[in-house]
Structure formats: structure tokens, C-alpha cells
């Protein structure tokens, strides 16, 4: 089981997926929610700017989508590489 080529491929596919998800995770919270807030301050959302919305609502919604996307994608990768639970 250890070090078989398909397991390595499975693992790098997982690492790729996690990396993409965490980049989006950081962009939604640390990015638009905090540090990049001045960049998107021109976009008005209900009496304030997009950054405020990301900090109090948007980031949490993005996190939700990310976790479900990851779960769905990983569960199908498991099957594709034949490492799912029987």
C-alpha cells in the first residue's frame, strides 16, 4: 500500500486541491476582508463597502462553499484513485 504510484498521485492531487482552497480562503478573509479592503472600497454594499461585507458575511459564506467543495472533490478523488472506503 505504501508508496504505490497511484497513492503518490492521489496525494499530490489532494495537496493541489488544498492549496487552491486555502488561497481562496486567505483571499476572502485576510484579503478582501482586511488587507485588500482599500482596493475594493469603491464597491458600495448597503451603506458601506465590499470589504466590510466580506469581513462580516462574505468570508463565512466563502468558507462554507470551500469546505463542501473540498469534501465533494476529495470524495470523488478517493473513488477515482481507488482509495475510498468500501
Amino acid at each position: 500500500m505504501a508508496d504505490s504510484p497511484s497513492n503518490n498521485e492521489y496525494w499530490s492531487a489532494n495537496i493541489r486541491l488544498v492549496t487552491i482552497c486555502l488561497v481562496i480562503w486567505a483571499l476572502a478573509s485576510f484579503g478582501f476582508g482586511i488587507l485588500l479592503r482599500p482596493l475594493v472600497s469603491g464597491i458600495a454594499v448597503g451603506g458601506t463597502d465590499l470589504g466590510f461585507w466580506f469581513a462580516q458575511q462574505g468570508s463565512i459564506l466563502v468558507f462554507l462553499v470551500l469546505i463542501f467543495f473540498y469534501a465533494w472533490r476529495m470524495n470523488s478523488l478517493d473513488k477515482q484513485f481507488g482509495v475510498d472506503e468500501e
Binding site: 478573509s29 476582508g33 466590510f52 469581513a55 462580516q56 468570508s59 463565512i60 468558507f63 469546505i67
Partner: peptide, 26 residues
């Protein structure tokens, strides 16, 4: 906590939910 400082304390909202992304993936 959020009401008394407004935007700045949004960090509690992001901090206490964003950890679940790390937990779910790592």
C-alpha cells in the same frame, strides 16, 4: 463585542469560523 467596535472586531467572526476550513482540510 462587535457592536462596540464595529468593523474591527469582525476578526472574531472570521477567526472563529475560518479555523474550520483548516480543520476540514488539514
Amino acid at each position: 463585542l462587535i457592536a462596540f467596535t464595529g468593523y474591527n472586531n469582525s476578526l472574531f467572526l472570521m477567526g472563529w469560523t475560518g479555523g474550520y476550513v483548516l480543520m476540514a482540510m488539514l
